[in-house]
Amino acid sequence: MSNTSALRIVWIYPDLLSTYGDQGNVLILKRRAELRGIPTEVVRVNSSDHVPEQGDIYLLGGGEDRPQILAAERLRADGGLARAAARGACVFAVCAGYQIIGETYGDDEANPLPGVGILDIRSGRGESRAVGEIVADIDPALGGGRITGFENHQGRTAIGPSARPLSTTVVGTGNDGHTEGAYQGQVLGTYLHGPALPRNPHLADLLLSWRVGRIAPLQPSWGERLHEERLAAALRQ
């Protein structure tokens, strides 16, 4: 954890990257930490602000093409997120955020643009848009389990040798029709909306464990019920 007594959750650029209700990821992390007696502090960082380097978990959400480009440019110029990741902070990025923390991503005309460079992925634009429910099996090295969410993107993502796929797709497209998301150390990205962490509370717990170590299990509640409901609905489709 950071030098303060609280777990610092840093929400990056909600003014640019919060198209699909991504504040839910902030709220569920805070709630599941506090249910375990872990104090939290949420730091909201708009695109006009510097990114603090002493956070514990950094969250990036989805966004449209132009805000995505602006967010990538400002994050690269600022450097705070890259320095935080280099010292071992956890980063969780969704869709547009997932693409821009990679080495390169594509703009709205499929031109490659430089990303932040903290995850060994390269993203471009596919011929068709991926829209709908997605189900995938998490890499067993992360504890396994099945995740579910909603994808709405035209991106296609190739994973380099320094990163690993987050999961293997069962339903939906994800990166390329075979894998979904990627991780490298404590940097993790995904195309899953929903938002991702309320729909997959075990994924939220994985992020928390990366920062605070072993955490006590919680009694199943609405988050687990939502996960099972959406998983069953997606598999029926």
Score class of each variant (00 low, 15 high):
Asn3Trp: 07
Ser5Ile: 07
Val10Asp: 01
Tyr13Leu: 04
Asp15Thr: 02
Gly21Phe: 13
Asp22His: 02
Leu27Ser: 13
Leu27His: 12
Arg31Val: 04
Arg32Gln: 14
Leu35Glu: 11
Glu41Phe: 02
Glu41Ala: 13
Val45Gly: 12
Asp49Ser: 11
Pro52Gly: 07
Glu53His: 08
Glu53Lys: 06
Ile57Met: 07
Tyr58Glu: 05
Tyr58Val: 10
Leu59Asn: 11
Gly61Leu: 13
Glu64Met: 06
Asp65Leu: 10
Ala72Ser: 11
Leu75Cys: 00
Arg76Tyr: 05
Asp78Arg: 10
Gly80Leu: 06
Ala89Thr: 02
Phe92Ala: 03
Ile101Pro: 02
Gly102Phe: 04
Thr104Ala: 03
Gly106His: 04
Asp107Asn: 15
Glu109Tyr: 07
Leu113Pro: 13
Gly117Cys: 12
Gly117Lys: 12
Ile118Gln: 05
Leu119Glu: 00
Gly124Trp: 06
Glu127Phe: 09
Ala130Tyr: 00
Asp139Lys: 11
Pro140Ser: 12
Leu142Gly: 03
Leu142Lys: 02
Leu142Phe: 07
Gly143Ile: 07
Gly144Val: 11
Arg146Cys: 12
Thr148Ile: 14
Phe150Asp: 05
His153Pro: 05
His153Trp: 09
Ile159Asp: 01
Ile159Glu: 03
Pro161Val: 05
Pro161Ser: 14
Pro165Phe: 00
Thr169Gly: 08
Gly177Ser: 04
Tyr183Ser: 09
Thr190Tyr: 01
Gly194Ser: 11
Ala196Pro: 04
Leu197Tyr: 04
Ala204Gln: 00
Ser209Val: 00
Pro220Lys: 03
Glu224Lys: 11
Arg225Val: 11
Leu226Lys: 14
Leu226Cys: 08
Glu229Arg: 15
Arg230Trp: 06
Arg236Glu: 08
Arg236Val: 07
Gln237Lys: 15
